[in-house]
């Protein structure tokens, strides 16, 4: 009797556990507000495929869920490229079938040769951009041109600059200033970056990667380390705010769509990606969240006035592709994290 009962219980349990994955329709996880609010409704109306949205606040959050569950429960996730790379390395990403995604042709050719995934074999770029300096033209004496203007600010800017707190971009500012690769985790590079950042910390108002543009608008900060799209939120509120990529360059960040290898609806997932790559979604992303998208037909359909008001929207793909992408650090992550802790804990 006993084994049968156990078997029955196990069958019941697995049925309960498997039910979300077996449900008809797609489960998509994206950042809140990162796609048109009616996108899923329109997709379902057009294709008859049911789709449900889950939201994540950060890459790390969705990554934690996927690693813990082996990817089950989701069909498509929106993540930044280093995380797409890790998902692929962990065997959690499904290969993209280009035959089922004809709208891939809408992408800029540069967006098909991204360093983390040339040929878009497991990830499709959704939005991309740069990281640079966002500042109040009326509050700085001279316009910043170099990463050193952030890391070793002029006396009048001491206590009025902020840096991004997300580890990769924080260290990235120092890497770019020192002319190092963003993905170099050698001891001497980390040492030099750490020393520069600890020195810079004394002059900082705060580390901030969520409200920095608001600090610029209020005048609490005069110069902040910023993603281009977020600087645009400041520009929208105060035209005295400007964005510049320092002469040493930027990183190229890419947010991507990844289909999970565990998905039981891969064809439907490909259909969704194809739908997103249509012109409309790309235009919505650009107009509503002021991010650049690698969707050529969408970017070409934008109102020229928008590009004029937010000049960083017009950075050409040829320039973007010239910047280094953040890559998963793999074995180097541990030394990298320790150095970040050292910077964050420094007095």
């Amino acid at each position: 009797m006993q084994p049968t009962r156990t078997a029955a219980a196990a069958a019941l349990l697995s049925a309960v556990l498997a039910s979300p994955a077996a449900a008809e329709g797609l489960v998509i996880s994206n950042w809140d507000g990162y796609m048109p609010p009616d996108l899923l409704e329109r997709f379902t109306a057009e294709t008859g495929i049911a789709a449900e949205l889950a939201v994540h606040a950060t890459n790390e959050e969705i990554m934690g869920k996927l690693v813990a569950s082996g990817g089950t429960g989701f069909d498509i996730v929106f993540v930044s490229s280093p995380f797409a790379e890790a998902l692929n390395a962990l065997g959690l990403a499904a290969p993209i079938d280009p035959a089922k995604v004809p709208n891939l042709a809408n992408l800029y050719p540069e967006a098909m040769e991204l360093a983390h995934d040339p040929g878009n074999t497991y990830s499709i770029p959704y939005a991309w951009g740069t990281t640079g300096l966002c500042y109040r033209t009326d509050l700085v004496e001279t316009a910043p041109t170099s990463w050193m203007d952030l890391l070793k600010p002029a006396a009048s800017l001491e206590g009025k600059v902020t840096m991004l707190s997300t580890d990769r971009w924080l260290m990235g500012a120092a890497a770019l200033a020192l002319g190092k690769s963003l993905n170099d985790t050698s001891a001497e590079t980390l040492e030099a970056e750490g020393a520069l950042l600890i020195e810079a910390k004394e002059k900082l108002l705060a580390y901030d990667d969520t409200t920095f543009y608001a600090k610029l608008v209020s005048g609490e900060a005069s110069l902040v380390h910023a993603w281009d799209g977020w600087c645009n939120y400041g520009i929208a509120e105060n035209p005295e705010i400007a964005y510049v990529i320092p002469t040493e360059g930027s990183d190229l960040w890419v947010d991507t769509m990844v289909v999970m290898a565990s998905s039981e609806n891969k064809d439907a997932a490909m259909a969704f990606i194809d739908y997103v790559l249509g012109q409309e979604t790309g235009v919505w992303v650009a107009e509503n969240i002021l991010y650049k998208t690698p969707n050529k037909v969408a970017m070409e359909a934008l109102d020229p006035g928008l590009l004029e008001a937010f000049p960083n929207m017009a950075i050409p793909p040829a320039e973007l592709i010239g910047y280094e992408q953040l890559r998963d650090l793999g074995e180097g992550q541990r030394d990298f994290s320790r150095k970040v802790t050292e910077v964050m804990a420094a007095q």
Binding site: V67, A206, Y207, S337, V340, M344, A345
Partner: peptide, 21 residues
């Protein structure tokens, strides 16, 4: 603290979420 002062709670949070360790 403007994230400039790290306490042990932040350290643990970062290990789970940033470092994924």
């Amino acid at each position: 603290g403007g994230q400039k002062i790290q306490m042990v709670g932040n350290l643990i949070y970062d290990q789970f979420l940033s470092a994924r360790d």
